[in-house]
Design a protein around this nucleic acid. Structure first.
Lengths: 134, 134
DNA sequence: ATATATAGGTACCCCATGGATAGTGATAAT
DNA sequence: ATTATCACTATCCATGGGGTACCTATATAT
Protein backbone atom coordinates (compact mmCIF):
# COMPACT_ATOMS: atom_id res chain seq x y z
CA UNK A 1 0.00 0.00 0.00
CA UNK A 2 1.60 3.24 -1.10
CA UNK A 3 -0.10 5.59 1.28
CA UNK A 4 0.97 8.83 -0.39
CA UNK A 5 0.19 7.46 -3.75
CA UNK A 6 -3.31 6.15 -4.04
CA UNK A 7 -5.60 8.89 -2.81
CA UNK A 8 -8.52 6.55 -2.44
CA UNK A 9 -9.46 6.94 -6.09
CA UNK A 10 -8.04 3.63 -7.21
CA UNK A 11 -5.99 5.49 -9.81
CA UNK A 12 -2.23 5.95 -9.70
CA UNK A 13 -0.53 8.37 -12.08
CA UNK A 14 2.81 6.63 -11.50
CA UNK A 15 1.50 3.64 -13.44
CA UNK A 16 2.03 4.01 -17.15
CA UNK A 17 -1.24 2.34 -18.08
CA UNK A 18 -3.40 4.11 -15.51
CA UNK A 19 -5.92 6.52 -17.07
CA UNK A 20 -4.79 9.21 -14.64
CA UNK A 21 -1.33 9.00 -16.20
CA UNK A 22 -2.88 9.98 -19.54
CA UNK A 23 -4.74 12.84 -17.86
CA UNK A 24 -1.50 14.12 -16.35
CA UNK A 25 0.12 13.86 -19.76
CA UNK A 26 -2.66 15.93 -21.29
CA UNK A 27 -2.16 18.62 -18.65
CA UNK A 28 1.62 18.66 -19.16
CA UNK A 29 1.53 21.23 -21.95
CA UNK A 30 2.38 24.89 -21.73
CA UNK A 31 -0.45 25.84 -24.06
CA UNK A 32 -2.99 23.93 -22.00
CA UNK A 33 -1.75 25.86 -18.96
CA UNK A 34 -1.96 29.21 -20.66
CA UNK A 35 -5.27 28.71 -22.46
CA UNK A 36 -6.98 27.56 -19.30
CA UNK A 37 -5.47 30.43 -17.30
CA UNK A 38 -6.55 32.93 -19.95
CA UNK A 39 -10.12 31.64 -19.97
CA UNK A 40 -10.40 32.16 -16.23
CA UNK A 41 -11.37 35.75 -16.94
CA UNK A 42 -14.47 34.62 -18.78
CA UNK A 43 -15.57 33.59 -22.25
CA UNK A 44 -13.32 34.61 -25.08
CA UNK A 45 -13.15 34.38 -28.85
CA UNK A 46 -10.41 32.66 -30.80
CA UNK A 47 -8.90 35.97 -31.86
CA UNK A 48 -8.87 37.34 -28.34
CA UNK A 49 -7.07 34.24 -27.11
CA UNK A 50 -4.58 34.46 -29.95
CA UNK A 51 -3.78 38.05 -29.01
CA UNK A 52 -3.48 37.26 -25.32
CA UNK A 53 -1.27 34.18 -25.78
CA UNK A 54 1.62 35.88 -27.46
CA UNK A 55 3.40 33.54 -29.83
CA UNK A 56 0.76 30.82 -30.18
CA UNK A 57 0.10 29.77 -33.76
CA UNK A 58 -3.47 29.26 -35.01
CA UNK A 59 -2.78 25.56 -35.31
CA UNK A 60 -1.66 25.12 -31.72
CA UNK A 61 -4.50 27.27 -30.42
CA UNK A 62 -7.15 25.26 -32.25
CA UNK A 63 -5.49 21.97 -31.35
CA UNK A 64 -5.34 22.90 -27.67
CA UNK A 65 -8.93 24.12 -27.60
CA UNK A 66 -10.11 20.91 -29.29
CA UNK A 67 -8.35 18.79 -26.67
CA UNK A 68 -9.81 20.86 -23.84
CA UNK A 69 -13.25 20.66 -25.38
CA UNK A 70 -13.02 16.90 -25.87
CA UNK A 71 -12.00 16.43 -22.23
CA UNK A 72 -14.82 18.59 -20.91
CA UNK A 73 -12.74 21.49 -19.62
CA UNK A 74 -13.90 24.00 -22.21
CA UNK A 75 -17.28 24.67 -23.82
CA UNK A 76 -17.41 25.87 -27.42
CA UNK A 77 -20.26 27.95 -28.73
CA UNK A 78 -20.72 28.75 -32.41
CA UNK A 79 -22.81 31.65 -33.65
CA UNK A 80 -23.93 31.04 -37.22
CA UNK A 81 -23.07 34.48 -38.53
CA UNK A 82 -20.79 35.90 -41.15
CA UNK A 83 -17.99 36.57 -40.39
CA UNK A 84 -17.92 33.59 -38.03
CA UNK A 85 -18.14 34.07 -34.29
CA UNK A 86 -17.05 31.33 -31.89
CA UNK A 87 -16.73 31.69 -28.14
CA UNK A 88 -14.95 29.52 -25.61
CA UNK A 89 -15.48 29.32 -21.88
CA UNK A 90 -14.41 27.07 -19.04
CA UNK A 91 -16.81 24.43 -17.85
CA UNK A 92 -17.21 23.85 -14.13
CA UNK A 93 -14.54 21.16 -14.35
CA UNK A 94 -12.30 23.56 -16.20
CA UNK A 95 -12.75 26.27 -13.59
CA UNK A 96 -11.89 23.76 -10.93
CA UNK A 97 -8.62 22.99 -12.69
CA UNK A 98 -7.90 26.62 -13.56
CA UNK A 99 -7.29 27.43 -9.91
CA UNK A 100 -4.45 24.93 -9.72
CA UNK A 101 -2.93 25.89 -13.05
CA UNK A 102 -2.98 29.55 -12.12
CA UNK A 103 -1.00 28.66 -9.01
CA UNK A 104 1.63 27.01 -11.20
CA UNK A 105 1.74 30.05 -13.42
CA UNK A 106 2.14 32.32 -10.42
CA UNK A 107 4.88 30.06 -9.10
CA UNK A 108 6.71 30.39 -12.40
CA UNK A 109 6.53 34.14 -12.21
CA UNK A 110 7.50 34.37 -8.54
CA UNK A 111 10.49 32.05 -8.73
CA UNK A 112 12.22 33.35 -11.83
CA UNK A 113 15.02 34.88 -9.72
CA UNK A 114 15.63 31.61 -7.83
CA UNK A 115 15.87 29.66 -11.04
CA UNK A 116 18.07 32.23 -12.75
CA UNK A 117 20.41 32.04 -9.79
CA UNK A 118 20.46 28.23 -9.83
CA UNK A 119 21.24 28.22 -13.54
CA UNK A 120 24.06 30.70 -13.12
CA UNK A 121 25.54 28.54 -10.35
CA UNK A 122 25.18 25.39 -12.47
CA UNK A 123 26.96 27.07 -15.34
CA UNK A 124 29.77 28.22 -13.07
CA UNK A 125 30.18 24.70 -11.68
CA UNK A 126 30.31 23.29 -15.16
CA UNK A 127 33.10 25.66 -16.12
CA UNK A 128 34.98 24.84 -12.94
CA UNK A 129 34.82 21.14 -13.79
CA UNK A 130 36.17 21.75 -17.26
CA UNK A 131 39.06 23.65 -15.67
CA UNK A 132 39.73 20.79 -13.27
CA UNK A 133 39.81 18.33 -16.15
CA UNK A 134 42.47 20.33 -18.03
CA UNK B 1 -2.70 46.93 -16.28
CA UNK B 2 -3.71 43.30 -16.37
CA UNK B 3 -4.62 42.86 -12.77
CA UNK B 4 -4.98 39.06 -12.81
CA UNK B 5 -1.85 38.72 -14.81
CA UNK B 6 1.09 40.48 -13.30
CA UNK B 7 1.29 39.35 -9.72
CA UNK B 8 3.58 42.15 -8.74
CA UNK B 9 6.63 40.22 -9.88
CA UNK B 10 7.08 42.13 -13.11
CA UNK B 11 7.00 38.80 -14.95
CA UNK B 12 4.18 37.62 -17.21
CA UNK B 13 4.07 34.04 -18.43
CA UNK B 14 1.72 35.04 -21.24
CA UNK B 15 4.60 36.87 -22.90
CA UNK B 16 6.66 34.56 -25.08
CA UNK B 17 9.95 36.22 -24.22
CA UNK B 18 9.36 36.51 -20.48
CA UNK B 19 11.65 34.27 -18.41
CA UNK B 20 8.62 32.99 -16.51
CA UNK B 21 7.30 31.61 -19.80
CA UNK B 22 10.42 29.46 -20.06
CA UNK B 23 9.98 28.32 -16.46
CA UNK B 24 6.40 27.31 -17.20
CA UNK B 25 7.61 25.44 -20.26
CA UNK B 26 10.14 23.56 -18.14
CA UNK B 27 7.41 22.53 -15.71
CA UNK B 28 5.09 21.41 -18.51
CA UNK B 29 6.48 17.89 -18.68
CA UNK B 30 4.93 14.74 -17.32
CA UNK B 31 8.31 13.41 -16.17
CA UNK B 32 9.10 16.60 -14.29
CA UNK B 33 5.75 16.24 -12.52
CA UNK B 34 6.31 12.64 -11.63
CA UNK B 35 9.96 12.86 -10.61
CA UNK B 36 9.28 15.80 -8.32
CA UNK B 37 6.23 14.05 -6.84
CA UNK B 38 8.23 10.88 -6.29
CA UNK B 39 11.05 12.73 -4.52
CA UNK B 40 8.59 14.23 -2.06
CA UNK B 41 8.96 11.08 0.01
CA UNK B 42 12.63 11.82 0.57
CA UNK B 43 15.97 11.17 -1.08
CA UNK B 44 16.06 8.37 -3.62
CA UNK B 45 18.56 6.65 -5.86
CA UNK B 46 18.33 6.51 -9.64
CA UNK B 47 17.24 2.87 -9.58
CA UNK B 48 14.53 3.50 -7.00
CA UNK B 49 13.13 6.30 -9.12
CA UNK B 50 13.25 4.14 -12.23
CA UNK B 51 11.25 1.44 -10.48
CA UNK B 52 8.72 3.90 -9.10
CA UNK B 53 8.18 5.75 -12.38
CA UNK B 54 6.91 2.86 -14.39
CA UNK B 55 7.81 3.21 -18.05
CA UNK B 56 10.49 5.87 -17.79
CA UNK B 57 13.60 5.11 -19.81
CA UNK B 58 17.06 5.69 -18.31
CA UNK B 59 17.61 8.49 -20.78
CA UNK B 60 14.49 10.41 -19.86
CA UNK B 61 15.12 9.90 -16.15
CA UNK B 62 18.66 11.25 -16.36
CA UNK B 63 17.60 14.08 -18.64
CA UNK B 64 14.81 15.12 -16.29
CA UNK B 65 17.02 14.93 -13.22
CA UNK B 66 19.70 17.04 -14.94
CA UNK B 67 17.15 19.73 -15.77
CA UNK B 68 15.81 19.74 -12.23
CA UNK B 69 19.33 19.91 -10.81
CA UNK B 70 20.30 22.73 -13.14
CA UNK B 71 17.24 24.73 -12.11
CA UNK B 72 17.85 24.22 -8.42
CA UNK B 73 14.88 21.98 -7.66
CA UNK B 74 16.89 18.83 -7.00
CA UNK B 75 20.21 18.21 -5.26
CA UNK B 76 22.47 15.42 -6.51
CA UNK B 77 24.92 13.66 -4.23
CA UNK B 78 27.53 11.23 -5.50
CA UNK B 79 29.19 8.63 -3.28
CA UNK B 80 32.53 7.59 -4.76
CA UNK B 81 32.06 3.84 -4.33
CA UNK B 82 31.88 0.83 -6.58
CA UNK B 83 29.26 0.06 -7.75
CA UNK B 84 28.31 3.75 -7.99
CA UNK B 85 25.83 5.29 -5.58
CA UNK B 86 24.05 8.53 -6.41
CA UNK B 87 21.21 10.04 -4.43
CA UNK B 88 18.71 12.72 -5.36
CA UNK B 89 16.62 14.90 -3.08
CA UNK B 90 14.44 17.98 -3.41
CA UNK B 91 15.90 21.33 -2.46
CA UNK B 92 13.79 23.75 -0.48
CA UNK B 93 12.67 25.31 -3.75
CA UNK B 94 11.81 21.85 -5.07
CA UNK B 95 9.75 21.01 -2.00
CA UNK B 96 7.91 24.26 -2.41
CA UNK B 97 6.97 23.29 -5.94
CA UNK B 98 6.25 19.67 -5.07
CA UNK B 99 3.19 20.69 -3.10
CA UNK B 100 1.61 22.24 -6.17
CA UNK B 101 2.58 19.44 -8.52
CA UNK B 102 1.17 16.86 -6.15
CA UNK B 103 -2.12 18.73 -6.26
CA UNK B 104 -2.12 18.43 -10.04
CA UNK B 105 -1.38 14.73 -9.79
CA UNK B 106 -4.21 14.26 -7.30
CA UNK B 107 -6.51 16.22 -9.57
CA UNK B 108 -5.64 13.87 -12.44
CA UNK B 109 -6.47 10.87 -10.32
CA UNK B 110 -9.68 12.31 -8.89
CA UNK B 111 -11.15 13.50 -12.17
CA UNK B 112 -10.56 10.46 -14.36
CA UNK B 113 -14.29 9.63 -14.35
CA UNK B 114 -15.28 13.16 -15.38
CA UNK B 115 -12.85 13.15 -18.27
CA UNK B 116 -13.81 9.67 -19.38
CA UNK B 117 -17.43 10.80 -19.46
CA UNK B 118 -16.58 13.94 -21.42
CA UNK B 119 -14.64 11.91 -23.97
CA UNK B 120 -17.46 9.44 -24.41
CA UNK B 121 -19.86 12.31 -24.99
CA UNK B 122 -17.49 13.97 -27.47
CA UNK B 123 -17.20 10.72 -29.39
CA UNK B 124 -20.95 10.29 -29.48
CA UNK B 125 -21.41 13.84 -30.78
CA UNK B 126 -18.85 13.24 -33.46
CA UNK B 127 -20.69 10.15 -34.66
CA UNK B 128 -23.97 12.03 -34.63
CA UNK B 129 -22.48 14.73 -36.82
CA UNK B 130 -21.22 12.16 -39.29
CA UNK B 131 -24.75 10.77 -39.44
CA UNK B 132 -26.22 14.21 -40.06
CA UNK B 133 -23.78 14.80 -42.88
CA UNK B 134 -24.85 11.60 -44.68
C1' DA C 1 39.27 -18.20 -15.04
C1' DT C 2 35.11 -16.87 -17.05
C1' DA C 3 30.64 -15.24 -16.88
C1' DT C 4 27.17 -12.60 -14.86
C1' DA C 5 24.98 -9.01 -12.11
C1' DT C 6 24.85 -4.31 -10.40
C1' DA C 7 24.49 0.74 -10.72
C1' DG C 8 24.25 4.81 -13.15
C1' DG C 9 24.74 6.36 -16.68
C1' DT C 10 26.04 7.73 -22.32
C1' DA C 11 25.61 7.24 -27.63
C1' DC C 12 22.91 6.62 -31.32
C1' DC C 13 18.80 6.51 -34.03
C1' DC C 14 13.74 7.26 -35.23
C1' DC C 15 9.59 9.37 -35.71
C1' DA C 16 5.85 11.90 -33.54
C1' DT C 17 4.86 16.37 -32.25
C1' DG C 18 5.49 21.32 -32.01
C1' DG C 19 5.71 25.12 -34.72
C1' DA C 20 5.87 28.25 -39.05
C1' DT C 21 3.62 29.65 -43.32
C1' DA C 22 0.16 29.84 -46.64
C1' DG C 23 -4.48 29.21 -47.99
C1' DT C 24 -9.96 29.03 -47.55
C1' DG C 25 -14.83 30.84 -47.59
C1' DA C 26 -18.22 34.25 -47.12
C1' DT C 27 -19.24 38.93 -46.53
C1' DA C 28 -18.67 43.98 -45.64
C1' DA C 29 -16.25 48.07 -46.10
C1' DT C 30 -13.50 51.30 -49.12
C1' DA D 1 -12.41 45.72 -57.61
C1' DT D 2 -9.69 45.27 -53.85
C1' DT D 3 -8.91 44.71 -49.27
C1' DA D 4 -10.05 43.28 -44.49
C1' DT D 5 -12.20 40.25 -40.99
C1' DC D 6 -12.67 35.85 -38.68
C1' DA D 7 -11.89 31.26 -37.50
C1' DC D 8 -9.91 28.05 -39.06
C1' DT D 9 -7.41 24.09 -42.25
C1' DA D 10 -3.40 22.13 -44.91
C1' DT D 11 1.17 21.51 -45.62
C1' DC D 12 5.81 21.41 -44.64
C1' DC D 13 9.97 21.37 -41.65
C1' DA D 14 12.76 20.78 -37.50
C1' DT D 15 13.22 19.86 -32.84
C1' DG D 16 13.28 16.87 -29.23
C1' DG D 17 10.93 13.04 -26.80
C1' DG D 18 11.59 8.31 -26.61
C1' DG D 19 13.69 3.51 -27.38
C1' DT D 20 17.69 0.35 -27.65
C1' DA D 21 22.26 -0.82 -27.08
C1' DC D 22 26.33 -0.12 -24.93
C1' DC D 23 29.93 1.36 -21.24
C1' DT D 24 32.64 1.40 -16.71
C1' DA D 25 34.39 -1.04 -12.70
C1' DT D 26 33.88 -4.34 -9.24
C1' DA D 27 31.84 -8.35 -6.54
C1' DT D 28 29.88 -12.67 -6.79
C1' DA D 29 28.80 -17.08 -8.76
C1' DT D 30 30.24 -21.25 -11.39
Amino acid sequence: MDSDNDCGTGYDAFQRTCPSHAVLEMLASKWVYLVVCALRRGRMRNGELARRLEGITPKMLTQTLRILERDGLVRREIFPVIPPRVEYELTELGQNLAGLLTQIRSWSEEHVPDIKQARARAEANQKAELQAQA
